[in-house]
Design a protein around this nucleic acid. Structure first.
Lengths: 240, 240
DNA sequence: CCCTGATGTGATCGGCGTACACATTGCCAA
DNA sequence: TTGGCAATGTGTACGCCGATCACATCAGGG
């Protein structure tokens, strides 16, 4: 996954693996100063390399950011798979399927909050990169696409009997929209939630989606525990 | 709302209303070339004005884009109010409240798709503008905040008996997340939907949310009409 | 009537993305 | 072994950008 360090073969006129090194440097700089403030020249400087060298590996700055975005998709998929593998309970059960849905959603939002700049590059207007359609295997590393993971989890919900097949129609859109919307609002600062409120929001979203898909309330989870004495509007709209 | 034209008072050394003119020019340029490609200098050029003049009215480029974002919030609010005013049926009824929810959601997504660049500026990382918190009255023009409109619609759902008060908790977050997520995915091209699929997705989202809030299915709307002979996955993941 | 504050100008600085000719290197074929 | 070619990195240059500063111009109130 885009290792920054890679042995300069010798008197380092030729870098050896400049392409991946550039992606790594871009990753670091974007995380530090945001995607807006990122500059190709600085990435080159970081690697002790001429600015023009980057153009041997990327058509332009957007292409480099596209590579960063693809890398991010791979990382997101890995996080989702990891959280998914930790879901307890007998696979195939309705409870396990519901918990899996919560797991992938949680991984998605968690990823966005931990790597906000990376997240914005992944979904921003930077990359018109064609490889975003079908992620290359060296990024996916044998795993599934993030979207495919979601599809599979929803299929499992139907297979387990938690959701009727009829309600399955378009469930990807509903699920992805909810989770992507919350992540975007939090990352962009339009919605400001504390840590406790965030997990409440995630629980709420999961329950709302499951109920919306016609799932039995017993599986969808407990009704919202009333916010501990707080205001009627625990959410805080902020800006932008 | 940021009129581009304004009479140069005379030998036009002083422009007369450069601030609003700049916002208008920025609005146009952002719509044409996107927020990334927007340049302060070009906006000044457009108005036949020195680049430095802009700094008499805005601290920096971000502040100008912040003004554009605020303007956009006003327009969004206006669109929502307009669509809301067209909702038929007896005000106060459960059906009217449910239709109102669909109306504001539709206006939100519609706005994003009609002004994608503007939408991205509004929610992007450009504006740290403090006035985004509470929109100035000259932008709101006596109307309500977009967020306040949503809150009021959700309150109406409870008042009409369509949704139990207990389920009201956090409904803003769920509703806003769904609608903002769909809008973002469409605007950024991560999800590609045709016109017919878009309205299906909106209907689906509305029904899912209402069911998720514990609304009676009869009010939440009809079950999804099976996509006309199309694939099992009408949604198309695309890129980014 | 002139002075003061607001507003626009011009020149300038450093940084950026990108293009191009040239230098250096690894490697394969003869 | 050697020669040459494709790949890869360098140096230089161009034009645009955001931002700053001293200065010019105007409007309106004492």
């Amino acid at each position: 996954m885009a290792d920054t360090r890679s042995a300069p073969s010798r008197g380092h006129y030729h870098h050896g693996d400049l392409r991946n090194a550039l992606v790594g440097a871009a990753l670091k700089l974007v995380a530090e100063r945001g995607a807006e403030g990122f500059s190709l020249r600085e990435a080159a400087r970081e690697l002790g390399v001429s600015p023009a060298a980057a153009y041997r590996h990327f058509a332009d700055k957007a292409a480099l950011l596209g590579a960063v975005a693809i890398d991010g998709m791979g990382r997101l998929a890995a996080e989702m798979e990891k959280d998914l593998s930790r879901v307890p309970g007998p696979a195939g059960s309705a409870a396990h399927a519901a918990a899996s849905l919560a797991a992938v959603g949680g991984a998605y939002v968690e990823f966005a909050l931990r790597h906000p700049a990376h997240f914005r590059v992944m979904f921003g207007p930077w990359c018109e990169h064609p490889a975003m359609d079908r992620l290359p295997p060296e990024v996916l590393r044998g795993g599934r696409d993030p979207y495919q993971i979601l599809v599979d989890v929803l299929d499992a919900l139907v297979a387990s009997g938690a959701v009727r097949a009829q309600a399955r129609q378009g469930a990807e859109i509903a699920a992805w929209s909810m989770v992507h919307g919350l992540a975007s609002l939090l990352v962009d600062g339009a919605l400001e939630l504390g840590a406790r409120e965030r997990v409440q929001a995630m629980v709420l979203l999961g329950r709302t989606l499951l109920l919306g898909l016609g799932c039995r309330p017993s599986i969808a989870g407990p009704v919202a525990d009333p916010v501990d004495g707080d205001s009627r509007h625990p959410s805080r709209k902020r800006r932008c």
